[in-house]
């Protein structure tokens, strides 16, 4: 019998699995020593977080956390335009964090048979947005006068993320990295495929390669209607992709690309549901993807712990 971690790693290595992998087979590790997770309101660690969510991220961008939305939004931007980045952006000093002490403090939490995961909440485009705002970031991608600075910033940022991810692997045995970077609107890409290829893709490729070099799994979280980019996402080497289910036809994508890519599909409840309806939702998902190699994620935040346990038992029978 595989452990949950083993089952997931077999899944990502295209080897036989004992059950359909599910996100409850993973353990999120988002320690508060990384200011990012406090700013974004997502700390997950051994000691319950008792502080205030929101505040400055580790680049100094301030975030407002809304408990109703269960998310954070930046309240100010660091730069007037991206040409200022070298002068004004102070990259976090990873050596200033006592990683070994953090590992000791979380030893019990991390002593698990699950796959340990972490998240980079701002991929390169979203980090650019946090620096100069969405509109300026979008324009910077196509403005010839700004593109050189954008490239230089993305290169430096990617190197930083690689170092961060290496440390998360070294000190905490993180083996699964989710990188958030939204590339789509409700009904289209935010930018053209050409812009993506020129401005985004080189750095995502570099990051994915570094993640793979560490023996880790790369999960892209990108919302919006980005189905046109699925071939690129596969080609860049991402191991799985999850995104907003309402913006794409996930089923069609699984049928079209599922033989050589692993999609994450979501059983979701935004409002509380009773156990019968929870079971029904999961069974429908399992029936839909009966013959497909997909990773099941539990979304929406409304399923109860006991319903999540029920889902675990249900997938173990697959």
């Amino acid at each position: 019998m595989y452990t949950p971690r083993e089952n997931l790693m077999h899944f990502f290595r295209n080897e036989p699995v004992e059950w359909k992998p599910i996100s409850t087979d993973m353990l999120n590790f988002l320690p508060e020593v990384v200011p990012e997770y406090v700013a974004r309101g997502t700390v997950a660690q051994q000691k319950p977080f008792t502080g205030q969510y929101g505040g400055p991220d580790w680049f100094g961008v301030n975030w407002y956390y809304d408990p109703v939305a269960r998310g954070s939004m930046e309240t100010m931007h660091l730069l007037d335009d991206i040409s200022e980045w070298e002068e004004k952006v102070v990259f976090p000093d990873l050596d200033a964090i006592d990683w070994e002490n953090c590992a000791r403090e979380n030893a019990e939490y991390l002593n698990t048979d699950k796959l340990i995961c972490t998240t980079v909440y701002s991929g390169i485009f979203e980090r650019l947005i946090s620096m100069i705002g969405f509109e300026d970031a979008a324009v910077a991608l196509i403005d010839e006068e700004q593109q050189e600075d954008v490239h230089a910033f993305f290169e430096r940022l990617t190197d930083f993320y690689i170092e961060y991810i290496k440390r998360m692997h070294k000190y905490f045995n993180v083996e699964f990295v989710t990188v958030h970077d939204d590339w789509g609107t409700q009904d289209s890409l935010i930018f053209s495929e050409e812009s993506h290829k020129e401005m985004i893709e080189p750095y995502v490729r570099k990051l994915i390669k570094a993640v793979h070099d560490e023996g880790m799994v790369y999960d892209l979280h990108s919302c919006g209607k980005i189905d046109k980019l699925i071939p690129t996402i596969i080609d860049m080497g991402a191991d799985t992709w999850r995104g907003q289910e309402t913006a794409v036809n996930k089923y069609e994508l699984v049928k079209k690309y599922g033989n050589h890519f692993k999609f994450t599909v979501v059983v979701r409840a935004d409002e509380p549901v009773d156990d019968d309806n929870a079971r029904k939702k999961m069974q429908e998902l399992l029936n839909t993807y009966k013959d497909d190699r997909v990773l099941i994620a539990i979304g929406g935040g409304a399923f109860t712990p006991s319903q999540r346990n029920m889902f675990e038992k249900m997938v173990r029978k697959t």
């Binding site: 979008a138 196509i142 890409l189 935010i190 053209s192 812009s195």
Partner: peptide, 14 residues
């Protein structure tokens, strides 16, 4: 018609 995207719209709007 998805012939142009958000950045192009923004540039035009400006």
């Amino acid at each position: 018609n998805n012939e142009i995207f958000v950045p192009e719209v923004l540039v035009a709007a400006r």
